[in-house]
């Protein structure tokens, strides 16, 4: 049976709201535990990496176009081109490869 999308949206909204608001309102002291601090520090990078690869090569019609976009995207981001430019460059890379092959 399919779960209800509106209940999903409600669950998402409440959970993400609590994640964002609880520290801001309740906890006024900095976290002391070194392991938890370091863990939290690394989390964003790991989550975003796991979600990027291999998803990027599955997203495009031609997996090599996705791989190319990944490499070009890493290069562009390495050059500090900023969020918008990196995004556009990735899209153009895919267009180019899928047009050529």
């Amino acid at each position: 049976m399919k779960n209800n999308i509106y209940i999903y949206i409600l669950v998402m909204t409440v959970t993400v709201f609590l994640v964002r608001v609880l520290p801001l309102t309740l906890i006024r002291k900095p976290i002391r535990n070194k392991f938890i601090r370091d863990f939290l520090y690394y989390v964003p990078y790991v989550t975003l990496s796991v979600m990027t690869f291999p998803a990027i090569i599955d997203a495009t019609d031609n997996p090599f176009a996705g791989l190319f976009a990944l490499i070009i995207g890493i290069f562009a981001a390495y050059k500090n081109l900023g969020l918008f430019k990196v995004t556009v460059i990735c899209c153009i890379s895919v267009l180019l490869i899928e047009f050529l092959f």
């Binding site: 990027t52 495009t60 995207g73 390495y78 899209c91």
Partner: peptide
């Protein structure tokens, strides 16, 4: 197909 990588481009711009 091209637009679907935009999201990942943004992720790269954050982590790299």
């Amino acid at each position: 197909s091209a637009l679907s990588v935009a999201l990942f481009g943004m992720f790269l711009a954050i982590i790299i």
